[in-house]
């Protein structure tokens, strides 16, 4: 493969956890800092770049592929906020066909169209659908397409479970040239034990936190306006959180191969947190303090 133009970063995470919101805000922050950015939504829902382009219509790569006509880059891409080049891979209608193969075909097509040579990006962000359910969704971290992946996760067990699955995929593909992990983006953080759970998880799996993103009304509001926080509320504290996150991701070279937890190990770990949370919520006092 020819030398890669720009840093190629894959962002994974369980469905509905805030991947697209986070990725779009990172893209917007990088663009704001003067970088040339491409964001590729690898999800059949094709809504990854909505907030970057004000919800305007954008034909997906696979829609164009389905038509069978010759495809030009202009047909499947549009410049959004800060000049971020937005692309959506798209996919089949729900319940039909193979979305995994679709992502594979879309990524191949973008390479054939010399997207990176033409646009000369500094950063390319791949926003990838939920769990790594099959080989197709591992394409962005395989075959040297990206060299780093981040995972967005809240402190919910199912989100961490999906993160652990991604770790398994990275663990499998990294030795043969696949991407390594840049870190976990802790999303929807609320006061209390939430940070502690994610911190414990990254410690157990030999990974690190790329940034904590608090749960914020600004995010919800901006989304409703069809914009990123960076665009809608540039002076908010939340915008700074995304800027810091983007800076970290842009500069971070500490890439690791994670040590995913085994199924039983993950279950036991979750159970131990279940007990601790119960105690915290109900004010149970354990240990030395018990004697007071």
């Amino acid at each position: 493969m020819a030398e890669k133009i720009g840093k190629h970063i894959a962002i994974y995470g369980k469905g509905g956890i805030g991947k697209s919101t986070t990725t779009s805000n990172i893209s917007a922050a990088l663009a704001e800092a003067g970088y040339r950015v491409i964001q590729i939504g690898c999800d059949p829902k094709s809504d990854s770049t909505n907030t970057l382009r004000g919800n305007n219509y954008l034909p997906t790569v696979l829609d164009s592929l389905r038509e069978g006509n010759k495809i030009h880059l202009d047909d499947i891409s549009v410049k959004g906020f800060g000049g971020v080049l937005c692309i959506e891979s798209g996919g089949p209608v729900p319940g039909v066909g193979c979305a995994g193969r679709g992502i594979n075909a879309a990524v191949n097509l973008l390479q054939e169209l010399n997207l990176f040579e033409e646009f000369k990006p500094d950063y390319v962000l791949y926003d990838v659908l939920g769990d790594v359910v099959c080989g197709g969704f591992a394409v962005p971290i395989r075959d040297g397409i990206t060299d780093r992946a981040y995972v967005v996760s809240s402190s919910d067990f199912m989100a961490l479970y999906a993160a652990n699955n991604l770790f398994k995929a990275i663990n499998k593909y990294a030795p043969t040239g696949g991407a390594k992990l840049g870190g976990v983006i802790a999303n929807s953080m609320k006061p209390g034990y939430h940070r502690e759970i994610v911190d414990d998880f990254v410690a157990k799996t030999g990974t690190s936190i790329a940034g904590y993103v608090n749960r914020s009304l600004d995010v919800q509001q901006s989304e409703l306006y069809g914009k990123t926080v960076i665009e809608a509320k540039p002076n908010s504290a939340q915008a700074d959180i995304y800027r810091n996150l983007a800076k970290y991701i842009a500069e971070n070279e500490n890439l690791v191969v994670p040590n995913p937890l085994g199924s039983a190990e993950l279950r036991d770990w979750a159970r131990s947190w279940g007990d601790r949370i119960y105690d915290i919520e109900n004010g149970v006092v354990n240990g030395l303090a018990e004697a007071i």
């Binding site: 592929l65 389905r66 069978g68 039909v96 193979c98 193969r101 075909a105």
Partner: peptide, 10 residues
Amino acid sequence: QERHVIFGGA
């Protein structure tokens, strides 16, 4: 062909 795999071949 590939498009029948991606979008379904029914």
